[in-house]
């Protein structure tokens, strides 16, 4: 049955606690959006400086790795949302299963990303590597942006996986019908998903048919 239905001592009731927790998480996520906003602004500036070179640099990216990772992360986000729904409807067993499935897909995402980085390294697109070679200074700038953006995102995926795993491991979280911990971990995971939703056209789709 549902547990943790009583609010922490500093809150009048559980609804107020839930709203305060979510509001705090969303304000934190707003700061994350501003952090990634700077990264997107760099891409925006590069594209406005030289649209043709941007499209050409993007055409070297691994479109199908990016597409697979988008599908994986969207599915993982759905599983995190399902975990919240399951916990809220007092179904802790399925809440745990959904969370672990979301974590599993997150690990697959990192695996695909690592393989993509390896192929980029073999192609000589890793800035600073001994075999690095770029056709122009702009292509190197784009590559710098690509590794900064996806590297920062991968760090956030790792953080999100830690949060989701913590929520999945805690019995009290799975049995909380207000889904406070699971809900906040899921919010973070959805933000990681939204950032990738915008990185996908920025990095991969721009040069898809070039």
């Amino acid at each position: 049955m549902a547990e943790q239905s009583r609010a922490e001592i500093q809150f009048h009731n559980i609804d107020r606690q839930r709203e305060a927790d979510r509001l705090g998480m969303l304000v934190f996520l707003a700061s994350e959006i501003m952090l990634f906003g700077g990264v997107f602004l760099a891409a925006f500036s590069l594209r406005m400086l030289s649209p043709d070179e941007y499209v050409s640099a993007s055409s070297h990216m691994k479109l199908w790795h990016g597409t697979a990772n988008t599908a994986i992360l969207l599915a993982s986000s759905m599983l995190a949302a399902l975990a919240v729904e399951m916990a809220s409807s007092s179904n802790p067993k399925w809440a745990g299963r959904c969370l672990w499935s979301a974590v599993g897909l997150g690990i697959v995402f990192l695996g695909v990303k690592a393989h993509e980085y390896y192929l980029d390294y073999l192609d000589g697109k890793l800035p600073g590597a001994a075999n690095a070679h770029f056709s122009s200074e702009f292509e190197q700038l784009f590559s710098n942006f690509y590794f900064t953006a996806t590297g920062l995102h991968a760090l956030h995926v790792t953080g999100g996986l830690a949060l989701l795993s913590t929520a999945a491991l805690r019995r009290s979280a799975r049995h909380d019908c207000h889904a406070i911990l699971i809900g906040n971990a899921a919010l973070y995971w959805h933000l990681v998903d939204i950032v990738w939703i915008f990185l996908y056209p920025t990095i991969y789709l721009a040069g898809a048919s070039a």
Partner: peptide, 14 residues
């Protein structure tokens, strides 16, 4: 991308 983000915000992020 905006359509996808709105769906995630509206339904997944409740």
């Amino acid at each position: 991308a905006v359509a996808k983000a709105v769906l995630v915000l509206w339904f997944f992020m409740e």
